[in-house]
Design a protein around this nucleic acid. Structure first.
Length: 108
DNA sequence: GCGGTGACGGTCG
DNA sequence: CCGACCGCCACCG
């Protein structure tokens, strides 16, 4: 059993649409954790392997993949590109692919 | 119970 | 644009 906060974070991550990404801080805010982006990182790190949770759609505010463990970042990038997310070098084009939960209408 | 650490973020230089 | 510092707070030894 995980803490309620963890389940909350996971619930938010599940809401991220395919082909979109969200930052840790954004997830933290939507989950009602305030600016505690680090806890989001912990929550995702605590995920079991083979989870159906789209953890790969969560990146840091710089648009980069923060995984410490080698191999994971490469894996995550591959998953994102498979969904149509474009990278700009090591960074994702946040201005185009960042998820916007019921905020202003996305002009496109 | 204390202290170091961290899948982060924002600010400063 | 990039690196360094500090702040936040849960997890672990």
């Amino acid at each position: 059993m995980a803490s309620e906060a963890y389940e909350r974070i996971w619930a938010v991550v599940k809401r991220i649409p395919k082909g979109r990404v969200a930052t840790y801080g954004q997830v933290a805010h939507v989950a009602g954790l305030g600016q505690r982006a680090r806890q989001v990182g912990y929550a995702l790190h605590a995920l079991p392997d083979g989870t159906q949770l789209p953890w790969h759609r969560v990146i840091n505010a710089q648009g980069k993949i923060s995984l410490r463990r080698s191999g994971g970042a490469d894996e995550q990038r591959a998953l994102l590109e498979a969904e149509g997310v474009e990278f700009e070098g090591e960074r994702i084009r946040l201005e185009r692919f960042q998820w916007r939960p019921r905020k202003k209408k996305k002009r496109r």
